[in-house]
Nucleic acid binder design. Structure first.
Length: 824
RNA sequence: GCCGAAGUGGUGAAAUAGGUAGACGCAGUGGACUCAAAAUCCACCGAGUGCAAGCUCAUGCCGGUUCGAGUCCGGCCUUCGGCACCA
């Protein structure tokens, strides 16, 4: 007989589907558990990353099923966007065709892997019954003042022919296609995510997120406390507002630094009397690449504007310079320069021979301005600072800020690094922005009754230099919904991250055609109890989804504060130390291994190789190892005598031979170990190791026919826990073994196993004996022995006695049940 | 520079509250079965030293606390990830 995994896996997949065991029940009285793995792009068949991701999610799902929860594990496809569009171009087809084709292939593969998915809830973001509600949410955002349109310099990828959000640019390269990103001035739609900056910093409402992800988002949002100070412009009503984290250096300001984009500069440039070199400098800097400009090693350049402003604390005349090192979109877009105490300002002042003024002195020694080769940026004591001289810098920050506030010349303030989310994409395969541009009425939202704005299908996709939608005249030209005059549709589509920002909520009520989802149903399921996905989305999807969720809460669509209560960031599957990729040619096709060893083998391998957050190095031998384990189990149960099948006994007899007593201990210990692991750390690799260990012990007991009745009960129990504990990792084989044992119900219906602490008490305990911390022997002592008895037993060990000869014992420490430590 | 994570055999990794370092697996070695191979089963498997009992060394490096440190504390080194002319 042979372990025919193909047949076994098909058989159980069919049985599960027929019985509908994975269908989750909305608004059930049972406690719910919502497990979600980040949905895939349908741009080809499943890869190993998916196999790993869903194996983890499925282990959790099945365990929760065993615990009796009403479990929801849905699946969907992130089917709009570049990967899907590019796949179609490559195959000389239309994305609507290739996408649905790929979905079909992926669906079959998920089924072949035996993932416990509620297929009735399947969705795809490119289907109009889904994107309809994305458009509806866009309108809600718009109506709540969270959408605006502005012209700005944006990240442009020539390869993808579209704009990228800041989060989607890595190292000045496109996060998706890795080609160089350049700056382009375009009119864009933005979501005001910055309105939620403060709340996004607060992770107190999540239950368990990796510190790493929280730190990354916190970094990205970049909150900074400081003071806003008004510098009145000389001979003008205007003020220059600056943001500074160092109000203590305010008396040391010797110039003001503005970027050429600053509105004040723009206005100066309109003056016909403006010097030509000033205008040409500004032009030059603006045309420079934004990213090159904001890199720290770019040489600082500037030009004196001819204008002065006044320092509010001492009335000093301050030169206003236009420079290339100040960023328009951070803080107020203006910097008060303190050369003596800021390295950048120091370099700039040296280069252009601008005055410096020392206002912070070292606490213990005197600084001499003329001798300084770099700025003094540390804390110190204020000097040359009027009434604030003599104060330590930390204290003076508060004092100077309140002084400014009293005089209405400044205020305590907070700035964030986070920018609003640019969601316009100039690509065809995305969710159309539901807006019509009318010459008379301006921007008009498409009325709810006309939603969804259907994406036209008669579009030739391919390499284009403009958005393909622009060429679909009968789609673009449409009457204004307000006045009926001829108008044009918005042709930008939404970033696909918009689609993925609320899909977890749609799963709760995926067929709803009146609303994105029913509020009560969503509130029954949300938040997602366990989310699983890659770390690469820390500052993208995971932040956008939190933003959307908080918005949906504010408009009363959901009642929870966070979308994902627990987050597990799974590692990648590597081959030869690198992430698998087609370009590197180091991919492994999961299908090939499913065909050769079965789905259970792949699942056990990826879960056993390392803990879920860590990368897994693919190993063909490792897969064979996993297969060996499953095969051994199958053979074992094939040969298991009938008397060890069926009913799970509880046994409390004490007259057992030692090997069987150990087996009973192992049975209860394994149950306990795995249960606690699920609750505390989810390290499936050690769970599977514990299962192997238990099975190895069981396997080593050969003479089962001569056991007495109680011993046989113990043996039977040791056997029957295996399919139950194996179920989350290798569900097909677990069901098969359970059936071999004579059961007609599914494994999960048995419920959760419980251990009896009584059997975790050993009557003999091994004590390790140390002398001065070095191990000198071991001794078996009865578990209820007194400390003194343990000491006596320890001293009698030959090796210990020998080492103690002629030595004075200073102290003996007995750690109950563990060791004896003798100090000499 | 700031923030975060990690460094353990040939190898993937264990060690849950400071208590036997290397569980479990892979690879390897020897053996059984076989004409042979595969599969399977049994045994060994950190380094050094010893006939052996044993002893010594060993968790990136250097110190410290402790009867006892992979684990705690101080100081470094390396690698990976995030942020960065952010005022």
């Amino acid at each position: 007989m042979e372990y025919n995994f193909t047949e076994i896996e098909k058989k159980w997949q069919k049985k599960w589907a027929e019985a509908g065991v994975f269908n989750a029940e909305n608004n059930s009285k049972k406690p719910k558990y919502y497990v979600l793995s980040m949905f895939p792009y349908p741009s080809g068949p499943l890869h190993m990353g998916h196999a790993s991701n869903y194996s983890i999610g499925d282990a959790i799902t099945r365990y929760k099923m065993q615990q009796g929860y009403n479990v929801l594990q849905p699946i969907g496809y992130d089917s709009f966007g570049m990967p899907a569009e590019n796949f179609a171009i490559l195959n000389n087809s239309h994305p609507s065709i290739t996408t649905e084709n790929n979905i079909k292939i992926m669906r079959e593969q998920f089924q072949m892997l035996g993932i416990a998915i509620d297929w009735s809830r399947e969705l795809a973001t490119s289907r109009s019954n889904y994107y309809h509600w994305g458009q509806w949410l866009f309108k809600k955002l718009y109506e709540n003042g969270l959408v605006y349109r502005k012209s700005s310099w944006v990240n442009w990828c020539d390869e993808c022919q579209t704009v990228l959000a800041n989060e989607q640019v890595e190292d000045n390269k496109c996060w998706r296609c890795d080609s160089e990103v350049r700056q382009k001035d375009l009119v864009q739609w933005f979501f005001r995510i910055t309105k939620y900056a403060e709340e996004l910093l607060d992770f107190s409402k999540v239950i368990d997120w990796p510190e790493r992800v929280k730190a990354m988002q916190t970094n990205w949002i970049g909150k900074s406390h400081g003071t806003e100070v008004d510098f009145p412009l000389e001979n003008s009503e205007k003020v220059i507002k600056v943001f500074t984290t160092r109000p203590d250096t305010l008396f040391g300001v010797t110039f003001m630094a503005l970027p050429p984009e600053h509105p004040l500069v723009t206005q100066w440039l309109t003056d016909p009397a403006v010097k030509p070199d000033l205008a040409s400098f500004c032009q030059k800097v603006i045309n420079e690449d934004k990213i090159a400009r904001s890199s720290a090693d770019t040489t600082k350049e500037g030009i004196f504007s001819g204008h002065y402003c006044l320092n509010p604390v001492n009335g000093d005349r301050v030169q206003v310079w236009i420079t290339n090192y100040v960023l328009m979109d951070y803080g107020t877009g203006a910097v008060m320069a303190v050369p003596a105490h800021d390295q950048r300002d120091f370099e700039f002042a040296k280069k252009y021979q601008i005055d410096m003024k020392l206002v912070i002195n070292k606490p213990d020694s005197d600084l001499v301005l003329a001798e300084m080769t770099q700025a003094y940026t540390e804390e110190g004591v204020l000097v040359n600072s009027g009434e604030f001289s003599g104060l330590p810098s930390e204290q003076s920050k508060e004092k100077i800020t309140s002084w400014l506030a009293e005089k209405s010349m400044g205020n305590k303030t907070v700035t964030y690094r986070l920018r609003d989310w640019g969601i316009s994409r100039q690509r065809y395969w995305g969710n159309p922005i539901p807006v019509v541009h009318c010459e008379k009425c301006g921007i008009v939202l498409v009325p709810d009754a006309d939603l969804p704005v259907q994406l036209p299908m008669n579009v030739q996709v391919g390499k284009t230099t403009q958005n393909p939608l622009l060429s679909v005249d009968d789609w673009v030209n449409t009457p204004c919904p307000k006045c009926g005059a001829p108008a044009r549709r918005e042709t930008d589509t939404m970033d696909t991250f918009v689609d993925s920002s609320w899909y977890f909520a749609r799963y709760t009520d995926p067929q709803n055609d009146k609303a994105p989802f029913d509020i009560n149903t969503a509130n029954y399921w949300l938040p997602v109890d366990q989310y699983i996905g890659g770390i690469e989305h820390a500052c993208m999807h995971l932040m956008y989804a939190r933003f959307f969720h908080k918005f949906m809460r504010d408009i009363k669509l959901v009642s929870s504060d966070e979308p994902f209560a627990r987050l597990l960031t799974q590692g990648m599957v590597l081959k030869d130390g690198y992430k698998m990729s087609k370009s590197k040619g180091n991919t492994v096709d999961p299908q090939e291994f499913i065909d050769r060893y079965g789905a259970d083998t792949i699942r056990v391998f990826v879960l056993f190789a390392s803990p879920p957050e860590k990368d897994v190095e693919w190993s063909d031998d490792g897969v064979k190892g996993a297969f060996r384990f499953l095969n051994r189990l199958w053979v074992f149960f094939q040969n298991l005598p009938t008397e060890f099948k069926k009913q799970l006994p509880t046994n409390s007899a004490d007259t057992l031979q030692p090997a069987i007593k150990d087996l009973r201990y192992s049975t209860h210990y394994t149950i306990k170990f795995i249960k606690e692991d699920y609750e505390q750390r989810m390290q499936f690799n050690t769970n599977i190791a514990a299962l192997m260990e238990h099975f190895n012990l069981l396997f080593s007991i050969k003479d089962t026919q001569n056991l007495n009745t109680s011993e046989k009960d113990v043996y039977r129990q040791a056997c029957l826990i295996l399919p139950i504990l194996l179920y989350p990792y290798a569900p097909h084989l677990a069901e098969e073994l359970w059936e071999i044992c004579g059961h007609t119900s599914f494994v999960h219906e048995f419920g959760e196993l419980d251990y009896d602490p009584k059997f975790l008490q050993k009557d003999e305990v091994t004590y390790v004996v140390q002398i001065n911390g070095k191990i000198r022997g071991k001794v078996e002592v009865s578990a209820d022995a007194t400390d003194d008895a343990v000491k006596q037993a320890a001293m009698q060990i030959d090796n210990v006695a020998k080492s103690l000869e002629g030595q004075t014992i200073k102290k003996i420490i007995v750690v109950k049940g563990k060791l004896v430590s003798i100090v000499i």
